[in-house]
């Protein structure tokens, strides 16, 4: 697994994983920790909002099909609050139709990955989202 370029060591980026499938959470958490990120897990949309309000992460990895509030709604909720403008959103979902992908981006997602996915591609996308654009880095 390629190691991402070192995030700021004092404050490794935090990733919130919102998914109700424990079997995929195990792999994702493992991959992200290996890549040097800190992780947190929410099993529902409502869980995710509570965590966001307490301690907003740098990235939300968001499934769409969730019990209760779905991933699209969580995404909209985040984007309707300007204080979370800096939070990146990655949709990671089995909903893979073109119209669903367009809807995801229209609602403010920064990346959209459909399940099943390549783990290598997933880690690269996380890294791309959490690496500031070149001009911001001195």
């Amino acid at each position: 697994m390629p190691q991402p370029e070192s995030p700021v060591p004092s404050h490794p980026p935090r990733v919130l994983i919102v998914d109700d499938e424990p079997n995929i959470i195990i792999s994702i958490e493992f991959l992200l920790r290996q890549a040097g990120y800190t992780t947190q897990v929410a099993h529902s949309g409502e869980d995710a909002l509570r965590i966001l309000q307490q301690e907003p992460p740098d990235l939300v990895v968001l499934d769409i099909m969730l019990p209760g509030m779905d991933g699209f709604e969580v995404c909209q909720w985040i984007r309707e609050h300007s204080e979370w403008n800096h939070v990146k959103i990655m949709m990671l979902t089995a909903k893979g139709r073109d119209a669903e992908i367009s809807k995801g981006f229209a609602l403010g997602a920064d990346a959209y990955i459909t399940k099943p996915f390549s783990t290598r591609h997933f880690v690269e996308e996380v890294h791309r989202l959490l690496t500031p654009p070149a001009e911001d880095r001195i």
Partner: peptide, 23 residues
């Protein structure tokens, strides 16, 4: 229809949009 529908707020214009996306 192979499409999607959603409701969204456009803060900049102070509007609410109901969007239907069709292939």
């Amino acid at each position: 229809h192979g499409g999607e529908i959603w409701v969204q707020r456009d803060r900049a214009r102070d509007q609410v949009q109901l969007t239907l996306l069709l292939p």
